[in-house]
């Protein structure tokens, strides 16, 4: 049985740009799919096709069991959309915006009003609820837009880069919202440029590049293909490199002994792929201490989008296409 979101062979070209080049997706009901890819990969275009905003040149898609191309109106009743750029009326207040959306989902005026109040509380906008959205900060607008997408508790949700522009507190709050949605049975497709985020929220990840899904799987499966986590150690002096290497080799994937550990002599940096996460760090520190190695820095490095790309395509994510939509500010890893 096809999932709550199902797409086959979606193709969309704009002039001579091929935005989608045969995208296949399947998101089982009640799960989260993270669509991961660099700028221009086709994430937004995919979301727009699935939310009835754009007709593909070819291919088929169903959402909540309904054909997107044949019955767009019916699909619209079952979906909530938070697009890449906040879709709110600047001159209406936050409350008026949400009430309007509720009314257009055919809710009664009373119900729309109550729901607007709840969502404003929920998204920390109660204080600004009666100010025109024009006076909101970028993050507030983003939250209002997310609230608008949740007005009717739709069974299928689409979020295009939902955390772009949010500060850490609000990002965490949004992650909580997403987890609550999923535990309530909502199916979610979210796009992101950050593997950490997909890792944290999504059951499955589809990596897109140049309009194609180039890899899919759970985050563990992808990480396995990418080399997973690494421990990075910077030792205090050169003489410590060799003993440190011997210690770190014990944590490596095994088989190759010290060869598992890569060394940058001039920066005194040693890197070893590991599995086991943060609790491993304490052990590594203890073991290094036991052999008398003094360290300047130690850290757990997670695979980044770049790592995934390098391992999947042999080339780095196409940075040349970066269009400066603010994504660059979000590169920091969120606290795990």
């Amino acid at each position: 049985m096809p999932g709550a979101i199902h797409a086959e062979g979606l193709v969309k070209t704009f002039g001579d740009v091929t935005a989608l080049d045969g995208v296949d997706l399947d998101v089982p009901e009640g799960t989260v799919l993270g669509l991961l890819g660099p700028n221009g990969a086709g994430k937004t275009t995919t979301v727009r096709v699935l939310t009835t905003l754009l007709r593909p040149d070819s291919g088929t898609a169903t959402v909540a069991g309904v054909d997107v191309l044949e019955h767009p109106d019916e699909v619209r009743r079952s979906i909530g959309l938070s697009g890449q750029f906040a879709a709110v009326d600047e001159y209406l207040t936050g409350r008026e915006n949400l009430q309007m959306v509720g009314r257009l989902y055919q809710m009664r005026a009373r119900a729309a009003k109550e729901r607007a109040g709840e969502l404003l509380e929920r998204f920390h906008l109660a204080d600004a609820a009666d100010r025109p959205a024009r006076t909101y900060s970028g993050g507030m607008r983003r939250r209002l837009d997310l609230a608008a997408a949740l007005v009717v508790a739709p069974p299928v949700m689409f979020m295009d880069e939902p955390t772009t522009g949010l500060d850490p507190r609000n990002r965490q709050a949004l992650w909580d919202v997403i987890k609550e949605l999923v535990s309530g049975g909502t199916t979610l497709l979210l796009t992101t440029q950050y593997l950490e985020e997909a890792d944290h929220l999504a059951h499955d990840i589809a990596v897109v590049d140049h309009g194609k899904v180039i890899a899919r799987g759970t985050s563990d499966q992808l990480k396995a293909r990418t080399g997973g986590e690494r421990v990075e150690v910077v030792v205090h002096d050169r003489e410590a490199v060799a003993p440190a290497r011997a210690v770190l080799a014990r944590y490596g994937p095994g088989g190759r002994g010290p060869d598992d550990v890569s060394v940058e002599e001039h920066t005194r940096k040693l890197t070893v792929p590991v599995t086991g996460g943060a609790k491993l760090l304490a052990e590594v520190i203890r073991d290094l201490d036991a052999v008398g190695v003094e360290i300047d820095d130690i850290g757990l490095r997670r695979p980044t989008l770049d790592d995934v790309f390098i391992s999947l395509t042999g080339h780095a994510a196409a940075r040349a296409q970066e269009d400066g939509n603010g994504g660059g500010l979000q590169r920091k890893e969120p606290a795990a």
Partner: peptide
């Protein structure tokens, strides 16, 4: 606080 996925808040059938 009511839940985000409260089915009471599902979209009513459009009158059309």
């Amino acid at each position: 606080m009511s839940s985000l996925t409260d089915t009471a808040a599902h979209a009513p059938a459009p009158r059309g």
